[in-house]
Every structure is written in C-alpha cells, then in structure tokens.
C-alpha cells in the first residue's frame, strides 16, 4: 500500500513539475516581455524598466523559472501588479469561497447521485428507473450557469428565499455563508449528479451481472444482501474515477458560476486579472488549480487502493 502510494506520489509530482514548466513558458515566455505586455503599448520606457526590475525579469529565463518555483514552494507567489499586494494573500481570501463551494457541490452531487443510481439499477425498467434516466438525461444537457440563472430567477427574484448574489463573508456566521453558497452549489451539483447517477447505475448493472453475484446468491443471500455486501463496493471502483474527474470540472464550473452570483472567488479574480493584464495573478491561479486537480487525482488513487486489494500489492 505504502509503495503504491509513494509510486503514485512520485509520478504525480513529476506531472506537477512539468505542468509548472508549461504554465511558465505559456505565460512568461510566449508573450515576449511580460512587463511591456502588462503595461500595454503606450507605456513609457522607464516604467517598463521599473516593472522589469520589480518582476525580476533582468535575469535569464531558467533562473526566473527556478526563482518562481522556489518562491511558490516557500509560499511567495509574487506581487500583483495591479493591486500591489502579495498574490498569495489575494488567492487565500478568494480560496475561502471557491474551495467550500466546490466541496459543497461535490457533497450534494454525491448525496443525490448514489441513491438515484442505486434505485435505478436495482429496479431496472421500473417507473423509478425511467424517471431517474429521464431527469438525468436532461440534467446532463443543462449548462450549469444557465441553470444557475434560472435558480436566481425563481428562488431569489420571485420567491425571495435567497439573495440573488454576493457573499456576506464568513465573519457573518457559518450559516449565512452556507446560505449564500447554497444556490451556486445546487447549480453546480445537479448536472454533475446526473452524470454520476448514470455512472453509478451502469456500473452497478455491470457488477450485478458478474459471476460472484451468482455465487453469493447460491450461498443463500437475498438480492438485497447481495447488493449491499457484494455489488456496491465493486461498483464503486469506476464511480471513484468519475468523482475524481468531476472535481476538476467542479473547480472550472465554480469559476463560471461565481460570475452568475457575483461571488468574490478565484473565478472573479482571474477574469479581472485577465482584463487588467495582471499575468502574475493569472499564472498563480492556474498553477493553484492544476495543483488542486493533481492532489484530487492522488486522493482518488489512494481511495482505489483502499477499495481494491489487487492494487495494494504489486506482485
């Protein structure tokens, strides 16, 4: 188990390292002189020179990459050109919204998808199955940001149960914060839950066809006992893969959804930075999100090994 974990960790660290190189080259090398790019065409030469010095552009690209990498490892993401504040502080504040939002949505989507998928698979062809399949077919087709707009229209503007957007801040109490994130989380979760419920259903149907299910029935287990003791854990393996993949969609989705609800999360930050040509902030946010995706991949790999003994030993 440990060897497996270490192997995956090494492989993913390598992925992360190469990803950082790709991001660095794309954002700091491709545009030519980032200082000139950030200041625009009409900037005075001495302003550009000042910014160059400030960004540490006067050394070679290899040294710059190493400086950037070393800075990130020690928690220094550089300074935002536009706001003149350390990027790490800006990101920290925004992360306090984006991360809870993604986790909230992931929890919701799992809580909805598992029961729906299990009911549909165990009562195949029943009215419950048909309605789960119909609703999820629609759920997969709905863009989450449009769904978010409809939620605002109904629950915020017409029913006035929630506010239409904005975030009170966590210092206003946990409940107020959760309430403000509820509509965005639902908007993110429902389309994801549709996908997950379908995966759960088809994975469970496949597992129920396996030989060992027949063996369990021959031992005298009822269909219900067979489902809980044998089918579910086996069916979980492909579902885990999808949950891992979904997290990266959730992060990306969260960035878009924040726009609908005017939430001051990472998404708002990155779009502002793009329009202000603040490359340092864009670079840091992208790197952070890639890091999050890779970490989740690693967690899913560990979960795999916890579920499946065949992965734990390498002989």
């Amino acid at each position: 188990m440990l060897r497996y974990a270490v192997r995956r960790l090494l492989s993913l660290s390598l992925t992360l390292l190469v990803a950082s190189l790709v991001i660095f080259v794309a954002i700091e090398i491709v545009p030519g002189d980032p200082a000139a790019y950030m200041l625009g065409m009409n900037a005075a030469p001495d302003t550009v020179a000042a910014l160059r010095a400030e960004l540490g552009l006067d050394v070679g690209p290899v040294q710059r990459y190493l400086n950037w990498l070393g800075g990130m490892l020690s928690g220094d993401f550089g300074t935002s050109y536009t706001y003149r504040t350390p990027v790490v502080d800006m990101i920290g504040d925004r992360l306090m919204i984006s991360l809870p939002l993604a986790l909230y949505a992931l929890t919701l989507s799992t809580l909805i998808a598992f029961p729906a998928g299990i009911i549909a698979a165990t009562r195949r062809g029943s009215a419950a199955d048909v309605s789960v399949m119909g609703v999820t077919q629609l759920g997969v087709a709905i863009p989450n940001f449009w769904f978010a707009m409809l939620l605002v229209l109904v629950f915020a503007i017409n029913l006035r149960w929630f506010s239409a957007g904005g975030f009170p801040g966590w210092d206003q109490g946990l409940l107020a914060g959760i309430k403000a994130l509820t509509l965005p989380a639902i908007a993110l979760a429902l389309p994801q839950a549709s996908i997950l419920a379908r995966v759960m259903r088809s994975s469970l149907l496949d597992t129920l066809d396996e030989d060992f299910i027949r063996t369990a029935r021959a031992k005298g287990l009822s269909t219900r006992q067979t489902l809980w003791r044998h089918a579910l854990r086996n069916a979980l393996i492909p579902v885990l893969t999808i949950i891992g993949l979904q997290f990266s969609f959730l992060l990306a989705g969260a960035i878009i959804i924040e726009n609908v609800f005017f939430l001051p999360g990472l998404g708002r930050l990155v779009f502002q930075s793009i329009s202000q040509r603040d490359l340092i902030v864009v670079e840091s946010v992208v790197m952070l999100l890639v890091f999050a995706v890779v970490v989740v991949t690693f967690l899913v790999d560990l979960a795999y090994a916890a579920v499946d003994p065949r992965l734990r030993r390498t002989n």
Binding site: A26, F249, L251, A252, I256, I274, V282, V285, L289, V293
Partner: peptide, 10 residues
C-alpha cells in the same frame, strides 16, 4: 490536469 477552462484562461 488542465481543464479546458484553464487552457482557455491561459
């Protein structure tokens, strides 16, 4: 590791 949105952002 790069969702389409991140590529688009870059």
């Amino acid at each position: 590791a790069f969702p389409a949105l991140l590529i688009a952002i870059m």
